[in-house]
């Protein structure tokens, strides 16, 4: 018990010493439904994410977790409050192409080969042909798809497409990786493989990752901290520190510590557990 407390305080200190990457301050998002009524998607969200941290946004559908992520990426305007990313506005960061965004669907362009898809954001940054090609090869090697470089997306399985999606997002060396339920459409086997891949890549590159999911086990397994969001109105109801050591391995999911953390996260939902 004393051991656990010590570990916890050590990590808290570690986090405090780190630089703040994303600061969400009293964020509120309101939109109007079809009947013209105001719907509060998010209300009074305060969150600080540190550099190199892996933070999950966890909650049931309708809790505003995707809305929060989209606000950070400047794909959506908040109605109240503000977001700062590295001291700048999300728009400045987006225009500087510092975000890597992994959508729920692979969003690959059917008319481009796998490699050309990975090169797409690099083209947008006006990189030379040689640099683009070299970088795309590196990325495809990292996600284990070197042999599929010249295939078209339609020829790949859903899991492989999602790996291309991740390779494309990482190819631009983003400071911040924003992931919106990237694995939710995949089968268990592919998902586990990609969890390991993601953690391996993250430990190598040390990006800040904001990861949206509705899967408690997934959030606990991957994250440094899990932010629990509750619906109606969408709000941040708890932040749970995940004290599992790194590197994480798949058999850690069987440990009592893991199950205890999962229970702790589940209990922190307001308005009943999932």
């Amino acid at each position: 018990m004393a051991n656990a407390v010590m570990e916890r305080s050590a990590q808290t200190m570690d986090v405090e010493s780190k630089e703040v990457e994303i600061r969400v301050d009293h964020l509120g998002v309101t939109f109007q439904d079809n009947e013209g009524n105001d719907v509060q998607a998010l209300t009074n969200v305060n969150l600080t994410v540190h550099k190199g941290e892996f933070v999950s946004l966890l909650g049931p559908s309708g809790c505003g977790k995707t809305t929060l992520l989209r606000c950070v990426a400047d794909l959506q305007e908040p109605t109240e409050g503000e977001i700062k990313v590295g001291g700048k506005t999300p728009r400045e960061i987006r225009m500087a192409q510092k975000f890597g965004f992994v959508f729920q669907q692979p969003v690959l362009f059917d008319w481009r080969t796998v490699k050309k898809n990975v090169e797409l954001p690099l083209e947008m940054m006006y990189q030379t042909k040689e640099r683009r090609s070299k970088r795309a090869d590196e990325m495809l090697e990292m996600v284990g798809l070197t042999n599929f470089a010249n295939h078209y997306p339609g020829q790949l399985s859903g899991g492989m497409q999602q790996r291309v999606n991740i390779a494309r997002a990482l190819g631009i060396r983003p400071d911040i990786l924003l992931m919106d339920e990237p694995f939710s459409a995949l089968d268990e086997f592919t998902k586990e493989k990609l969890h390991e891949d993601l953690l391996r890549i993250w430990s190598k590159t040390n990006k800040t990752i904001l990861f949206v999911t509705h899967n408690i086990q997934e959030a606990v397994f991957l994250s440094d901290r899990v932010c629990v969001l509750s619906p109606h109105p969408g709000r941040l109801s708890a932040i749970v520190d995940i004290t599992l050591p790194r590197p994480r391995t798949l058999d850690m999911r069987e440990t009592p510590e893991f199950n205890e953390l999962v229970r702790q996260v589940r209990d922190s939902f307001e308005g009943g557990s999932l």
Binding site: R94, M95, A96, Q97, G100, F101, M124
Partner: peptide
Amino acid sequence: DLMATYAA
């Protein structure tokens, strides 16, 4: 949205 994240 993807193109927006590339500031297209």
